[in-house]
């Protein structure tokens, strides 16, 4: 092979092959392969060997025991339900707070807008763990926040209902509250992006044709921001459903969420196939929302 043909090969095939091949190979080895291992693991049998599983030998090659347990054991079904309900409620409240904030961001002056946007993004850059931790401080029985809420409660209700403190920690309430707190930026940013792109003259046109501001919002702004609502909603819902840190720190150990269950099955029960099966089941549940998300994200980013 002459130098020239080698050079041509490099330009035509070699360079793209390198650009595509290196990241491709990396992701196949460190993402796809481990994931396939998990899928295979989910149909293996638990043993007391190290590693604690077996495929073949005296055990069946494919055992669907794990999946059968997920569908029949109330513990797993409850965990799935708890996760989905908690994630849905958190998504709803993120939307409830996030929408007006995002809309407000598009209405303030430009200099204010940059400052406020930075304030929205800032917590996102600070440690996730510490944001959860900050609420642990507030929700504790002796914290100023709990004391303040307790006093307010005792002031408002009949004396028989008075409490010494409000039991916030280790409950689904705490999980949802902290999820709303940590995921709110994920709701605000896509919403802001889709609202900011709306043409303000459309609002004026609706007003000009006789709509009051509230009506303008319902007829013009809201319908056009649906892609943003769905993108933001999925961006909160998907990670919230698989959340591990928040339920571990502030959740109720009696009604665990899926993420915590996977981790417990794996590390404490040493039941790798079971952990793998729950993981696969969670992913299957997430396929729908993910597809909705990618469709609407493309819509929210593209033109109309």
């Amino acid at each position: 092979m002459t130098r020239a043909t080698l050079q041509r090969w490099l330009d035509d095939k070699g360079w793209p092959a390198f650009l595509i091949g290196l990241p491709y190979l990396w992701l196949v080895v460190f993402f796809l392969l481990p994931f396939l291992v998990v899928v295979v693991m989910s149909v293996a049998t638990k043993t007391t060997t190290a590693p604690p599983f077996s495929l073949g030998g005296e055990h069946p090659w494919i055992s669907l025991d794990t999946y059968a347990r997920i569908l029949t054991d109330g513990l797993y079904l409850r965990a799935f339900l708890t996760s989905l309900v908690n994630a849905a409620i958190a998504t709803f409240f993120c939307l409830l707070i996030g929408y007006p904030v995002a809309l407000g961001l598009t209405r303030v002056s430009h200099s204010w807008r940059n400052i406020l946007l930075m304030l929205v993004i800032l917590p996102f850059w600070t440690s996730f763990l510490l944001r959860v931790y900050a609420w642990m401080g507030l929700m504790g029985k002796t914290s100023w926040f709990n004391v303040m809420l307790t006093d307010a409660w005792n002031f408002l209700v009949p004396i028989d209902w008075a409490v010494r403190s409000i039991p916030m920690m280790h409950s689904n309430f705490a999980v949802i509250l902290v999820m709303v707190y940590t995921y709110l930026p994920f709701m605000i940013l896509p919403l802001y992006a889709s609202l900011e792109r709306l043409d303000p003259t459309l609002d004026e046109a609706a007003m000009d044709l006789g709509s009051r501001p509230a009506r303008v919002f319902l007829d013009v702004t809201l319908p056009q921001s649906i892609p943003g609502i769905i993108a933001g909603g999925m961006l909160v819902f998907i990670p919230a459903a698989g959340e591990l840190v928040i339920p571990t720190l502030v959740g109720d150990a009696g009604s665990p969420m899926i993420g915590r269950l996977i981790s417990d099955e794996f590390s404490q029960a040493k039941d790798w196939p079971m952990a793998a099966a729950i993981a696969v089941a969670l992913l299957v549940l997430m396929v729908g929302p993910t597809m909705i998300y990618s469709r609407y994200q493309a819509k929210a980013e593209g033109s109309t």
């Binding site: 003259t201 004026e204 046109a205 007003m207 000009d208």
Partner: peptide, 20 residues
Amino acid sequence: VPPWERPVHMMFQSYAIFPH
């Protein structure tokens, strides 16, 4: 008198047609 109460309507330069 706010815009929505004026018997005045406008044809916007961008036309401002509601895309949805």
